Computed example of a mutant assay.
Amino acid sequence: MFRNILIPTDGSSLATVAVDAAVAFAKEVGANITVFTVMEPFHLFTSSSYQLGSTREEYEALSREHAAQTLAAAQAQAERAGVACATDQVRSHEVFRAIIQKAEDIGADLIVMASHGRSGVGALIVGSVTAKVLTHSTIPVLVYRKK
C-alpha cells in the first residue's frame, strides 16, 4: 500500500524516534523513503535560541550543517536497514507548506512525522507544524507522539 514515504525531521530527539520508526516501517512494507529537513530563514526578531546569538551568515551556516548531519544520520540508518533513501533540504518561512509540497513533488503516499504534543498556550505560541500538515495535506500522515 505504501511505497514512497516522506519523513520530515528537524533533528530533535523526538523526530529521531519518528525517523527510526519510519525506517523500520518502510523496511517492513518494502517502501522507499525520502528524509527531508526544512530550515527556517534567519529572522531579525526571533525567540529561537539558534538565531538569538547569531548573525545571518552564522545562523545559515549552522542550520545547513545541522540539516546535513541530520540527513546523513538518517541515510546511514536507512542503508543499514536496506531501505532505499533519498534526502533533501530546503529553506522556507512556511515549514508545513514545504513539507506538503515535497510530498506532492515526490509522489509520496504517506508522510511520517513527530509531534511534540504541545497543548494550551504552548501550542498557540509555538504553533504546530504537524497540526498544519494534518490540516492541509491530502496525503495520509502518520504521527509519532511523545509518550
Rank of each mutant, 00 (worst) to 15 (best):
S54P: 06
M39L: 10
N4A: 04
I5D: 01
A15P: 14
A31P: 01
L124Y: 10
I99Y: 00
S47Q: 05
R118T: 07
G120I: 12
I99V: 14
S47K: 05
F96W: 09
R91K: 14
R64K: 15
M39T: 02
M113K: 01
T34L: 04
V38N: 00
S119R: 14
V126A: 09
A123S: 13
V19T: 07
V112E: 05
D88M: 09
E60S: 10
Q77A: 13
S92L: 04
A67R: 01
H66K: 15
F36T: 06
V35A: 03
A108K: 08
D109T: 07
T55P: 02
S54F: 15
G122Q: 13
T34H: 12
M113R: 01
A76D: 14
S13K: 15
T55A: 05
K27Q: 12
V95P: 02
C85W: 12
M39P: 00
A73S: 12
T55Q: 08
P8S: 04
Q89V: 06
E60T: 14
D20E: 15
E60L: 13
D109A: 09
K102T: 06
E79W: 04
Y50G: 02
R97K: 15
L52Q: 14
T70Y: 11
A108H: 09
L14S: 09
V23K: 06
A81E: 05
N4T: 08
D109L: 10
S92Y: 02
